[in-house]
Simulated scan of single mutants.
Amino acid sequence: MMVSVWGDARWAIFGFLGLILIGLIGGIITGRKMKKIRKIMKENNAHSQELEKLINDNSLWFSIKMRTAIFLGVIFLMTVKPELEGSIITIFVSIILGALPLRMKYEPSAAG
C-alpha cells in the first residue's frame, strides 16, 4: 500500500530504521543504567554516592539527546518525504547533532 500511495518511499525505510535505532539506544544505554539505579533505590540507598554517580552519568544525557535528535529526524522524514539522498543525509545529520556535547556539567557554586 505504501508503494502505491507514495511511490518509491525510501524515506519510510530510513524513518523505520531511525525508530529501531531509538529503541536500541534506549535499551542498551538507558535501560542498563536505569536497571542499576532502580536496584540501588530498592536497597534503600537513595542517598548513596553510587546512585548520585549513576544519575549524573553523561551516558544518560547522551542517550536522551541522541534519541531526541533521531526522533526529530524521523518526524522530518515523515513530513518532507525526501528522496534517497535526502533521507540518508537527514538520518546522519540527526545522529551527528545528537552526538554533539550540548550539556554543560552542573557544578554547584560555593557561594550558595
Score class of each variant (00 low, 15 high):
residue 46 A to G: 13
residue 103 R to M: 10
residue 11 W to E: 06
residue 48 S to Q: 04
residue 54 L to C: 04
residue 94 S to W: 08
residue 23 G to Y: 04
residue 31 G to E: 07
residue 67 R to G: 10
residue 20 I to D: 08
residue 53 K to Q: 14
residue 50 E to W: 00
residue 5 V to E: 15
residue 104 M to D: 02
residue 6 W to G: 00
residue 78 M to N: 11
residue 76 F to H: 02
residue 49 Q to N: 15
residue 41 M to K: 14
residue 8 D to F: 08
residue 37 I to F: 03
residue 64 I to E: 12
residue 67 R to I: 10
residue 23 G to N: 09
residue 39 K to T: 12
residue 6 W to D: 14
residue 102 L to P: 06
residue 12 A to N: 10
residue 53 K to V: 07
residue 75 I to L: 15
residue 42 K to Y: 12
residue 106 Y to W: 11
residue 60 L to I: 14
residue 50 E to M: 05
residue 4 S to R: 10
residue 105 K to D: 10
residue 101 P to N: 12
residue 29 I to F: 15
residue 101 P to Y: 06
residue 69 A to R: 02
residue 36 K to Y: 01
residue 14 F to V: 07
residue 76 F to P: 02
residue 72 L to P: 05
residue 21 L to C: 09
residue 6 W to Q: 07
residue 1 M to E: 12
residue 109 S to M: 09
residue 95 I to N: 00
residue 64 I to Q: 11
residue 14 F to A: 03
residue 57 D to W: 05
residue 25 I to N: 02
residue 72 L to D: 00
residue 100 L to P: 01
residue 55 I to T: 13
residue 7 G to M: 07
residue 2 M to Y: 00
residue 44 N to V: 04
residue 73 G to F: 02
residue 18 G to R: 04
residue 26 G to V: 05
residue 59 S to Y: 05
residue 60 L to C: 08
residue 112 G to P: 03
residue 23 G to M: 05
residue 105 K to R: 12
residue 87 S to G: 14
residue 78 M to K: 04
residue 79 T to Y: 11
residue 83 E to K: 10
residue 83 E to I: 05
residue 86 G to Q: 01
residue 39 K to E: 14
residue 105 K to G: 05
residue 101 P to Q: 05
residue 63 S to W: 04
residue 111 A to V: 14
residue 89 I to M: 11
residue 6 W to E: 13
residue 5 V to A: 12
residue 74 V to T: 02
residue 96 I to T: 08
residue 58 N to A: 10
residue 32 R to L: 10
residue 112 G to L: 10
residue 91 I to G: 02
residue 69 A to V: 05
residue 29 I to G: 01
residue 8 D to K: 00
residue 99 A to K: 01
residue 81 K to L: 02
residue 62 F to E: 08
residue 104 M to I: 13
residue 53 K to A: 14
residue 95 I to D: 04
residue 94 S to F: 05
residue 94 S to V: 03
residue 17 L to Q: 06
residue 105 K to C: 00
residue 5 V to Q: 14
residue 30 T to I: 09
residue 103 R to E: 09
residue 66 M to F: 06
residue 25 I to D: 03
residue 64 I to S: 06
residue 101 P to H: 04
residue 79 T to E: 01
residue 97 L to M: 13
residue 77 L to N: 01
residue 74 V to H: 04
residue 20 I to H: 02
residue 93 V to L: 15
residue 49 Q to W: 08
